[in-house]
Design a binder for these strands. Structure first.
Lengths: 190, 190
DNA sequence: CTTGGCATGTAACTGGTTACATGATTGG
DNA sequence: CCAATCATGTAACCAGTTACATGCCAAG
């Protein structure tokens, strides 16, 4: 149940149309909650029907831009949702499934399979690179928006600190992935 | 597309019925890929139809146990899938959405909202505890199965090292969550 | 006035969740 | 033989993905 609330958050920050939201999702909330434009349009329709947002234009016209804004009931819903206790979501990662599968295949193979092991190492190295790139990007954002004496709008305010905490979570994950990949590559060296 | 392969992996390790798989998912592959028994039954039916696994009993009888085993085509499919290049999945976490929502609400609030800030801190502390517990659990597994001179079946073999790498990923994530939560709690102190 | 791209939308499907139903097996 | 539990299954729904269709608008 996060998508509607992610949309409410983004609209609260700045009203806009479905296409604008889709773009914004590609470069802010989308870093930790993704959505395609189809999901966004569907969700906007539901949010309007539930009376949590309102669009300027009365009727939906295909092709014509339609701006949405959060109305008080929507803000109340967002406040309610953020105050709820929600358990952490368990990890769900395909690479780990693949490693476990590789382990089981290995165990059932009589001879050492060097070709397979090489593919695995290459894949780990590739993931290390991708996570390293994402990490560098997050660090650049941090330097730009959150460093002492930066251009940030309102440094030191509670909301500024919260935004920073979210970014730091991203940094932490990427760092963890990078060092895990390095460590794993070392233990799998030929 | 990970669930069918997670099931193939589990069945390759040890053939079994849908219910047994559901139990095993609760305590091994399920640590990084969850599935309910309904998903598992649905997927077992598809895998059998695709000719990747085979059940002992000819027909499905409601209530009667049905054991499945991977057949060669299933092993081939698993080998194919593990050799594929797959990009890392982007982070998707509701807590981070909630923090961002809280930041936006804060920014729009005139006076500091101490009640809301307290709820947030309590939630962060709760998550820290839960992640700490999961971390301790993983560490206990590591000590039991992977420590030098442990009771592990085949220490030092490639599959043993892969299994360990998967476990270390879990440890790393939980550690990252715990230290992030601690850091964030410090910056949000009243 | 037409073409390209922007904005919105429909349709069909897959994956995951929740609620519930029913047959088989076993311990008392 | 009956209740509890195990094992399998159906149904309906929600979330996410992919492919495609259509209307608007502005630049050339």
């Amino acid at each position: 149940m996060s998508l509607p609330h992610a949309i409410l958050t983004s609209l609260l920050e700045k009203p806009g149309s479905g296409a604008e939201l889709a773009q914004r999702f590609d470069k802010s909330i989308g870093y930790f909650w993704q959505a395609t434009h189809q999901q966004i349009y569907r969700e906007l329709a539901r949010l309007e029907e539930r009376g949590l947002i309102r669009s300027a234009a009365r009727e939906a016209t295909r092709g014509r831009k339609r701006d949405f804004a959060v109305i008080p009931a929507g803000l109340a819903e967002l406040e309610r949702w953020t105050s709820l206790a929600q358990d952490p979501q368990p990890v769900r990662d395909a690479l780990l499934v693949r490693l476990r599968a590789a382990a089981v295949i290995q165990a059932g193979t009589v001879q050492a399979d060097t070709a397979r092991a090489g593919i695995l190492r290459a894949e780990l190295a590739r993931h290390r690179e991708l996570h390293q790139r994402q990490l560098s990007f997050y660090q650049a954002v941090e330097a730009h928006d959150f460093a002492a004496g930066s251009e940030a709008r309102a440094p030191g305010t509670p909301d500024h600190r919260l935004q920073h905490a979210v970014l730091r979570a991203g940094i932490m994950f990427e760092r963890a992935w990078v060092s895990w990949a390095e460590e794993t590559l070392r233990t799998l060296e030929p």
